[in-house]
Nucleic acid binder design. Structure first.
Length: 261
DNA sequence: ATGGCCTGTTACACAGGA
C-alpha cells in the first residue's frame, strides 16, 4: 500500500500537476493540504478522470484538506470534534485542517498544522493550542487503531538536519524550541518518523520558499511528514520525497512524500 | 546586501503562507 502527502497550495491551480502525478505514481491514497476551495467547487471530475475518488473538507480561500483514493475509504471523519468532542475543540474546527479515513486495516489521518506566522504571535498561540488538542485526538485514535498513519504538512522541522541552515532557528517559525517540544510531546503518544527509518543524513527537504531561488539552491525545510504507530513502523518498506513536481512550471512550494507499507 | 514569491479575494491592495 502506498500513501502520499502533498501540500498543493490550491488544488485548482495545481490540478494538472496532481492528475499528471497520480497517473505516473498510482498511490492508493494521496492526502492533500491547502486545497483552498469550498466543497461544491472541488474539481472532482478531473480527479475521477484519472481513477480516483475524493473525501474532502474545504473552506473558502484558506486551508482545506482532501484524501484522494482509488478504493473508497471507510469511516471518513472531518475535524477533531467526532473524536474528542465539541467541548475540547472549541473553535479549532472552523479551519478545515483535519481529515481521516481507513483503507483496509490502516487508519490514515491527514493534517494541515497551522503555520503560526511568527513566534509569539496570536497565530503562534493558536498553533500551540491546536497541537494540544491534536495530542488528545491521536491518543484516542490510537486506542482504537493500532495501525495508524498520521501524515501531512506539520509546519515544524523537528531537528537541525531537517533545515538547510539552522541559523536563527530559536526564533524562527517552524523550528523554535517550543514548537519542537510540542510536536515531540504529540509524537510521544506512540508515533515514529517513517522517513528517518531509512535516511539519516541532512539535505532532504519537502518545502522550499518561492523566493530567492531556494529550490535551485536546495535551501529547504523538511516539514511534511509521515508518522507511524509501532505496528506500521515495523512494516514500512520505504519513505521517499519526490522532488520532481517542485521543479515544474508554477509549482506548489511543497513536494510529495510517499510511504510504502 | 538579510530580500527576493505566490494564491485567492465580490481584489484593483491585502491577508496568509512558511
Amino acid at each position: 500500500m502506498k500513501i502520499a502527502t502533498w501540500n498543493v497550495n490550491s488544488v485548482r491551480t495545481r490540478l494538472t500537476h496532481i492528475t499528471d502525478w497520480l497517473s505516473e505514481h498510482p498511490v492508493d491514497v494521496l492526502c492533500l493540504q491547502e486545497t483552498k476551495v469550498v466543497d461544491p467547487d472541488f474539481p472532482l471530475e478531473a480527479i475521477q478522470s484519472v481513477g480516483y475518488r475524493a473525501a474532502i473538507s474545504g473552506q473558502k480561500s484558506y486551508n482545506g484538506v482532501a484524501m484522494l483514493s482509488q478504493q473508497p475509504l471507510q469511516n471518513i471523519s472531518s475535524g477533531f470534534t467526532p473524536i474528542v468532542g465539541a467541548a475540547a475543540v472549541g473553535d479549532l474546527d472552523d479551519q478545515k485542517r483535519v481529515l481521516s479515513g481507513q483503507l483496509d486495516d490502516v487508519r490514515i489521518v491527514n493534517l494541515y498544522v497551522p503555520n503560526g506566522s511568527a513566534v509569539g504571535s496570536e497565530k503562534y498561540a493558536y498553533k500551540m493550542r491546536w497541537l494540544t488538542v491534536l495530542k488528545t485526538y491521536l491518543e484516542k485514535l490510537l486506542a482504537d487503531h493500532d495501525a495508524l498513519l498520521v501524515c501531512g504538512d506539520f509546519n515544524i522541522a523537528l531537528e537541525d538536519r531537517d533545515i538547510h541552515d539552522p541559523q536563527g532557528k530559536e526564533t524562527h517559525i517552524m523550528s523554535s524550541p517550543q514548537e519542537r517540544e510540542m510536536l515531540t510531546d504529540v509524537l510521544s503518544v506512540g508515533l515514529k518518523d517513517a522517513f528517518r527509518k531509512f535516511t539519516t543524513d541532512g539535505g532532504h527537504f519537502s518545502w522550499w520558499d518561492y523566493r530567492a531561488a531556494a529550490f535551485r539552491r536546495n535551501r529547504g525545510w523538511r516539514i511534511d511528514h509521515h508518522y507511524l504507530s509501532s505496528k506500521l513502523y515495523d512494516r514500512v518498506k520505504s519513505c521517499v520525497i519526490d522532488i520532481e513536481p517542485r521543479g515544474l512550471e508554477k509549482p506548489s512550494d511543497h513536494t510529495p512524500v510517499i510511504v510504502e507499507l
